[in-house]
Amino acid sequence: MAKARSKRGGLLLRLYVAGNAPNSLRAVANAKAICEEYLTSRYDLEIVDLLKHPNRALKDGIIVTPTLLRLRPLPVQRVIGNLSDTNQVLLTLASK
């Protein structure tokens, strides 16, 4: 678990990964890059390892990893996969 940046009132993102599995590493790198490059507003990215915290994943309704959750603003949005499709990620994060 790592917090990239913490700012109040902005986007709250949570990325579920599975240890050092290849798609998970790629998803972490992609998520960080997208946040750095495109998110001008405040955001909070939390990375959760499914293998260490299976119960949290269960509570968040995670079925597969990697999965990126947009927890705030509501409604909750999910992006599934290694986040290599930047447009898709941005569209989901911006959707209402």
Binding site: S24, V64, P66, G81
Partner: peptide
């Protein structure tokens, strides 16, 4: 299908 998933719960 595109092999982007590492784990399933």
């Amino acid at each position: 299908l595109s092999g982007q998933i590492d784990a399933v719960v």
